[in-house]
Amino acid sequence: MSQFLEQLLNALVIGSFYALVALGYSMVYGIIRLINFAHGDLYMLGAFFGYSALLLLGRISLGSGVTGVLLAMLIAMGMTGGLGVLVERVAYRPLRGAPRIIPLITALGMSLFLENAVMVFKPWGASFRVYPVTLGRAGFDLFGVHIGYAHLAIFAMALFLMVGLHLFVERSTYGKAMRAVAFDLEAAQLMGINANRMISLGFFLGSIMAAAAGVMAGLYYGQINFLMGFIVGLKAFTASVLGGIGNLPGAMVGGMLLGVLEVFGTSSVGGQWKDVFAFGALILILVFKPTGLLGERTAGRM
């Protein structure tokens, strides 16, 4: 029982990272029908921006407290958000309307470029970097399980961001315009919506969610690496397909579910099969329910 609870807490934290990254995949896919490969790398870059921000804030003795972490997270989100918009502007926008394989290849190239740019950048480099701030062990005991406040805070923060994004997309005027563009780009343009701006907005929002997840993952695992986005990106994609791609609540549910599946699946078949488990899940979903749990019926053949 106590082990179960501990696993569940882990699963929810990991699942919330997947969910945050999955949101970006789903949003971008919903708007311009592109699998943005580089999205996992934005998560990685978010972690690195957070790392540098924490180091800098540490110099002015702001780096270790809650304020410092929140500030670093905001900085990382801002930088990554801007980068996400830039990536779209430079690499994807000129190719809108090209055959589908072309932007896919560009996205792959972008992903390689970002990963290796981080690798050759001296202050970041190829080896693992230890995160400047470690999570405190303080917490309380429940049914014999130690529950850290920091883990709860990460989970709460992720929930807060997801709910915030959901409300923004559903309630605000910008959100409405974004949904209109996703529904029918040309018709939305005819209604006077600046589609390019809405697409940029989608990339921005997706990127800041990924960046937040990256910083939190750095805090949670304690170390980061330039390749950390590759597998997480693939898993987040799995999560968004699991929830129904293009559907934001679906991405959140899918992420959480994948976290739970992975943690409990791994504990029963062994750690070395961890990634096989997640990708196997992707193949199974596509066989049995390609529209995902909350997906619309339109996700048919194309």
Partner: peptide, 15 residues
Amino acid sequence: WRYLVFGAALVLLML
């Protein structure tokens, strides 16, 4: 720099 160049090459070729 090999894979950095590979990545950039893919993007530039497609563009």
